[in-house]
Design a protein around this nucleic acid. Structure first.
Lengths: 121, 121
DNA sequence: CCAAGTGTGTATCATTTAGTACACACCCGG
DNA sequence: CCGGGTGTGTACTAAATGATACACACTTGG
């Protein structure tokens, strides 16, 4: 991915600059400092010059920008390790489930979530 | 993973040798030949000497051994690209769904599958 | 009995991943 | 008017991933 995958970077830049407008703690250098990465690297990430960072770095970035980690990971084409683990424990079942419900509308899936939450299982 | 992750290899060896017992087309060399990989490599994979192969190679192996690809991938700690894609299209929703239903018993999840199949959505 | 087929040990490899390090140019507030 | 802070271009790197290539020893059926 040395080219394209600009989506992740431009989204991050947009969010960071939005926060920077009201809080000078969100300069590229300061964010990079808190994440424990080089400013150069974050710069290239934001401009889509390099592929998105590792899962762990993306999660730290999500925390710092107060963004949803799953959304940021998705923009990077990744799925969180804990979700992967859910599938890996019962691969046949979850593979079948996901392939069956993949086109179900949001409200139907949310209904499942609600019903499970309410202990109807 | 230069050590351990023996689970994938030993399972593959077991299945291959079971087929070999009744069909001489399942020698290590012949299977490797059909997969388009070196026999040396398959040997090391089966003995857990190296990490499991790529997703594509695992899928060819599953076809050749008539095994469930999702199960073989799971033994290798991987999730099929098409399942990943399902999550990536609606990351917030599927992340929430998976975390909510992760501990639901098999029969409850199968009921969801059946209900979606029967068009109750 | 030996040639063909079996699996394996050792060495090596190209590519990808996930970054670091250093120098530089710009800007702008005191 | 300049020093500290901003982002960036260029060069480089260590480790992981996903394999190949060659040589070898064992065994086994015709």
């Amino acid at each position: 991915m040395q080219a394209n995958d600009r989506a992740f970077g431009s989204y991050v830049r947009k969010q960071r600059e939005a926060r920077l407008a009201g809080d000078s703690a969100y300069t590229l250098r300061k964010v990079a400092g808190r994440l424990g990465i080089q400013p150069t690297y974050l710069s290239k990430v934001e401009r889509g010059d390099v592929a998105p960072p590792s899962e762990e770095t993306i999660k730290r970035l999500a925390r710092d920008l107060d963004e949803d980690p799953d959304v940021l990971l998705a923009l990077a084409g990744k799925v969180s390790a804990d979700l992967r683990a859910v599938i890996l424990k019962r691969p046949r079942l979850f593979a079948q489930l996901l392939r069956t419900i993949q086109d179900a509308p949001d409200h139907a899936l949310l209904r499942v979530v609600r019903e499970v939450r309410n202990g109807k299982w």
